[in-house]
Amino acid sequence: MVQVTFKQNPVTLPGHEVKVGDQAPDFTVLANDLSPVTLNDTAGKIRLISVVPSLDTGVCSDQTQRFSKEAESLGDNVEVLAISCDLPFAQKRWTEVNNVNTITTLSDHRDLSFGEAYGVTMQELRLLARSVFIIDENDKVRYVEYVPEGTDHPNYDKALEAMKEVTN
């Protein structure tokens, strides 16, 4: 079981821990227009999934903007998804204000489907724990990072190095 803290306080992450080599669990989240989105909607693509507690906080905003900038050079066969429990309307506003258009923001607020499937729901806060997943075009998990302290940044360099290995 993955153990993380948020502001140095331990949080409970129910659900399934995802590991490298696993078949990527399916999930249903909401697009900014409230339409459902599943893993199958990006079938055949390599996915970098950046998970944040809330886009409207400093580290989460920085993380999403960083992966957005990196998305420009990752190639046409890569989808970068940012998933949080923010409402779809707030995500849309955030992307417009921050001029982010190279990634897709998705909301897990309704069912916590992604959070439970990937073991990232912070039960005490009803937010998602900061994490990064890379899933290849065959839906195999190729990289996993559960960030130990929720207010810290993920290891961008390690994630991007893993992405290069998957795309080559």
Rank of each mutant, 00 (worst) to 15 (best):
V2G: 11
V2E: 15
V4P: 09
V4W: 07
T5N: 13
F6C: 04
F6I: 04
F6Q: 08
K7H: 15
N9L: 13
P10V: 11
P10A: 13
V11I: 08
T12W: 07
L13E: 08
L13F: 05
L13Y: 00
P14A: 06
P14M: 05
G15I: 06
E17N: 11
K19L: 05
V20N: 03
D22V: 09
D22E: 02
D22Y: 12
A24N: 08
A24H: 04
P25Q: 10
P25R: 05
P25M: 13
F27P: 15
T28G: 00
V29D: 01
A31Q: 01
N32Q: 13
D33Y: 05
D33F: 05
S35F: 02
P36K: 03
N40S: 08
G44C: 01
K45R: 09
K45S: 00
I46C: 07
I46V: 15
R47W: 07
L48S: 12
I49S: 13
I49Q: 06
V51D: 03
P53L: 05
S54L: 08
S54R: 11
D56Q: 11
D56R: 05
G58C: 15
G58L: 15
V59W: 06
V59Q: 01
Q63V: 06
Q63H: 13
Q63L: 12
Q63P: 07
T64D: 07
T64K: 10
Q65V: 10
R66E: 00
S68M: 09
K69Q: 14
K69N: 13
A71C: 08
L74S: 12
L74C: 07
G75T: 05
G75W: 08
D76G: 14
N77D: 04
V80F: 11
C85I: 00
C85W: 04
D86C: 05
L87S: 06
P88F: 00
F89Y: 07
A90D: 09
R93L: 03
W94I: 00
W94L: 01
T95K: 12
T95Q: 09
T95N: 10
E96C: 06
E96T: 11
V97Q: 14
V97D: 08
V100N: 11
V100C: 05
N101T: 15
N101I: 09
N101R: 14
I103K: 12
I103P: 15
T104H: 14
L106V: 00
L106P: 07
S107A: 01
D111N: 11
L112F: 15
L112K: 10
F114Y: 04
G115F: 09
G115T: 02
A117M: 14
Y118F: 15
G119M: 02
V120H: 09
V120K: 03
M122K: 05
M122D: 10
Q123V: 07
L125A: 06
L125S: 03
L127C: 12
R130Y: 09
R130N: 10
V132H: 05
F133M: 12
F133H: 08
F133N: 14
I134G: 03
I134S: 02
I134P: 02
D136F: 06
E137L: 06
E137H: 14
N138R: 04
N138C: 03
N138L: 04
D139M: 01
K140L: 10
Y143L: 09
Y143E: 08
Y143G: 04
G150D: 05
T151I: 15
T151N: 11
D152K: 10
H153Y: 13
H153E: 15
Y156W: 07
D157H: 04
A159W: 10
A159C: 13
E161Y: 14
A162F: 11
M163V: 03
M163D: 03
K164C: 07
V166W: 01
